[in-house]
Write a protein that binds this DNA or RNA. Structure first.
Lengths: 174, 174
DNA sequence: CCTACCGATCGGTAGG
DNA sequence: CCTACCGATCGGTAGG
């Protein structure tokens, strides 16, 4: 529901109604509405980090490693659309302390992703582009997938991963 | 304010306070909160369409045309960050009729953008990729620029446009 | 897990 | 452009 209608526009009564209980009863399970948002963000962040950590220290060329990181990232977005959308777009409604916490987590993820790009630039496998700008650009494209991806559509997870890693590495020009 | 804190989390009293009048007085200028959102979306949509229309019928190779479209799109996002953010991300809070209207407008923009890609594929200038998926991917990356772009940062509009058109056309691999 | 309720705030209107 | 206010709804609590 946070994904569909946005955190601010989702009321505790909306949530309670979905579960089939009264709004007040929700407080036997959670402390606050924000705790719910925080937990979703943290759990989904973990998914992304686990996947990236499995990839980043593998002994393989940077291009293959980056392709793998892209494919793993996409796999999480497409298999956990709700969580990904909340982690990527609703986190900003967290209050100060938690907001800062999530901001730091997101930055760390981008930096670890960026290190793969940097490795490839340093070793001469990649062009001499700006690794930070490149990483932000790629993650922007990947993070918006949740908005248009249809689980039952004509594209599956693998095809999507292949499309992105191919296009981002090889470019559009023939 | 709609960009910074989100449409749903921005109250008429927030808006009135920013302008220095009472909330009730706002209704001498607008009919409703949603009308405000709708106007921002429509005005910004116009900016994007005007720019794309100036590019799409130019007589030049598809790669140059696409690069130009990307650069013009970025120019609008970076010069009208607030409007772009609202048009791209807050539009979904519109009510049914206006929601559908904006959805159609956004689709039309993507389709016109996509036609440039299709031309390049047909003429053999571009690789044989999926033009729709490619267009969505590119626009996703471009539409997220507002989230991290700093007008006073070390990157200006031109450099950003060049980065994206270069990377998307040529790819990362050396 | 419920009923009953709190003070605060919401978008918006009446009337001047 | 204001004061004064509407009914509805908000996140959350008390007490069982």
């Amino acid at each position: 529901m946070f994904r569909e209608r946005g955190y601010a526009a989702t009321s505790m009564r909306d949530l309670a109604n979905e579960v089939g209980i009264e709004a007040a009863s929700l407080y036997n399970h959670i402390k606050s509405k924000e705790e719910l948002l925080l937990n979703i963000c943290l759990e989904t962040a973990d998914e992304f980090f686990i996947a990236l950590n499995q990839v980043k220290d593998l002994d393989m060329p940077s291009d293959k490693k980056l392709a793998l990181a892209i494919e793993r990232h996409i796999a999480i977005v497409t298999s956990n659309i709700d969580g990904a959308a909340v982690f990527l777009h609703e986190w900003r409604f967290l209050q100060e302390a938690n907001f800062a916490r999530l901001k730091a987590i997101r930055k760390r993820y981008r930096q670890e992703f960026q290190r793969i790009v940097q490795e490839g630039v340093d070793s001469g496998v990649f062009k001499n582009i700006n690794p930070k700008l490149y990483s932000i650009s790629v993650l922007s494209a990947l993070n918006w997938i949740y908005d248009w991806y249809k689980p039952d559509g004509d594209l599956n997870q693998q095809q999507l991963g292949q499309h992105f890693s191919y296009i981002l590495l090889e470019g559009l020009r023939k």
